[in-house]
Design a protein around this nucleic acid. Structure first.
Length: 436
RNA sequence: CGGAGCGUAGCGCAGCCUGGUAGCGCAUCAGUCUGGGGGACUGGGGGUCGUGGGUUCAAAUCCCGCCGCUCCGACCA
């Protein structure tokens, strides 16, 4: 993109309403604009980040054997009456009526709907297990939206649903999603720690929150240093091997990890002091096992091997895609602005033309832009060097290719790494080689 | 939902107390000079003062209603 012709409205001053860094930086870097309380429009650069995050989530869900589909945002109230949540959910659920005065809701989640879809078509135990997911906008009418996109009312979420014939199968699905989550967050450059959210009804650790560490996080977290050492990478575990998943789950649940709400000082004290880690964290994912709660309530059963009906065991698995944009910034920024991890950056590199109109500078920049294409944001504005530096740092592109009259004369550019600040004078081809 | 506060130009704010026909910085537009970390000068443009009503000769300013937004607390992908 050429910045001179792009809708990337950066701000020099901090909008008053934004209290936390990620929100301030998202507004200043021109990623989002607020439309109503807790409701945001995603501008081109912000939307690219959102898409990049969704792509990583999608890739890891697919790799775990989950199937992508797309359910609607608007749901008939009838489904929610069946499960009993129409009354339970309270004011957080946005309710509306169509022209025929039929009750509808804007979906805050999709357990009812997916259960309905499965009961329409799945009849036999032979068709299980299955995991499906979608990445869709949700609406929860929070009493008090805040922290920008981190606690918005409208948000983009990946939610997956697993269906298994029995408990043992459900455990495997649950662990498979946990491993997929660890890989997902790791690919984004985040350190995530699964923390027990509540004891499952059957006694296992069957509800976990995934917390990423960020100094400005909303809750205090306590964890074993072991989490800094575990390697969740692809090499270690086969996501389709029940044995590997068992080994993985052991690693995830063997060590102490808890948010302040679940913190147990007695257990904590048993951990050697040099292995105790405290920090602050943000919840970016949540996995639940809830058995046949919805399948039973909504009359979904399949024929078991003996021909008798069985209510499948279910789980649901969420990742806050739009929240992750804020969380990533909370975890990675400095005084000058955002520091995007390479995997999610809206642009891999910014090309800074320090002397727009200078023949040598223009020629070099155009050559770079032609090669980098959509991976680059070309700052071709008629602005002074300082403005371009400040905006590039603010927007946080992993690389900056600085093209000024000094080097342009003999064909070199300066390559700056945003994260480290390291700069290097290079020939155009070498700079390209390092970026791509 | 309880408590507090704010709404004046794109952004940040002053003016309100003590009514008299709207101002500052940044941004923006034109021009000149400048040119490697948010430049200087000159000259422009832009506001039904959130909204409806009331008081008054006169309302951004005083009074009432409504709407919106923010912050603190209880709640959460």
């Amino acid at each position: 993109m050429r910045l001179s012709r792009s809708f990337v409205p950066t701000l020099k001053e901090i909008p008053v309403e934004a209290q936390i860094v990620s929100h301030r930086l998202m507004l200043r870097a021109g990623l989002v604009r607020q439309t109503a309380a807790g409701i945001y429009a995603w501008l081109p650069a912000g939307f690219r980040v959102l898409q990049n995050i969704a792509a990583i989530v999608r890739a890891e869900q697919d790799a775990a054997g989950a199937q992508e589909l797309l359910m609607p945002t608007i749901q008939p109230a009838e489904l929610w009456r069946e499960s009993g949540r129409y009354d339970d959910y309270g004011k957080e659920m946005l309710r509306l009526q169509d022209r025929h005065e039929r009750d509808l809701v804007y979906g805050p989640t999709n357990e009812e709907m997916i259960t309905d879809l499965f009961r329409q078509s799945i009849r036999s135990y032979r068709e299980l297990p299955q995991i499906v997911y979608h990445i869709q906008w949700k609406f929860r009418d929070e009493v008090r939206p805040r922290f920008g996109v981190m606690r918005g009312r409208e948000f983009l979420m990946k939610d997956a649903y697993s269906f298994d014939l029995d408990y043992d199968g459900a455990v495997i699905s649950y662990r498979r999603m946990m491993l997929a989550y660890m890989r997902t967050f790791r690919r984004m450059g985040l350190k995530a720690i699964p923390m027990q959210a509540e004891s499952g009804p059957i006694g296992g650790n069957m509800s976990h929150e995934f917390i990423i560490l960020a100094p400005t996080g909303e809750s205090e977290v306590f964890y074993d240093a072991a989490f800094e050492e575990i390697d969740y990478s692809a090499s270690g575990f086969d996501i389709f091997s029940a044995d590997d998943l068992d080994r993985f789950a052991g690693l995830m649940t063997r060590h102490y990890a808890a948010t302040d709400e679940k913190h147990d000082p007695a257990l904590w004290a048993e951990l050697a002091p040099e292995r105790q880690r405290r920090g602050r964290g943000i919840e970016v994912g949540h996995v639940f096992y809830f058995g046949s709660k919805y399948s039973a309530a909504m009359g979904f059963s399949v024929a078991g091997a003996d021909g008798r009906p069985v209510a499948p065991e279910m789980g649901s698995y969420g990742i806050g895609v739009s929240r992750l944009v804020g969380a990533l910034i909370e975890a990675s920024h400095d005084e000058a602005g955002i520091i995007w991890p390479d995997a999610v950056a809206p642009f891999r590199a910014a090309i800074l033309n320090l002397r727009q109109g200078d023949a040598a500078c223009d020629r070099l920049c155009e050559a770079l832009y032609a090669k980098l294409d959509h991976a680059a944001l070309y700052d071709d504005r008629e602005e002074r060097a300082g403005v371009k530096f400040a905006d590039a740092d603010l927007m946080g592109h992993p690389w900056q290719v600085i093209v000024g009259p000094r080097g342009a004369a003999n064909g070199t550019v300066e390559l700056k790494r945003r994260a480290s600040g390291e700069r290097q004078e290079l020939a155009l081809e070498s700079a390209l080689a390092r970026i791509l």
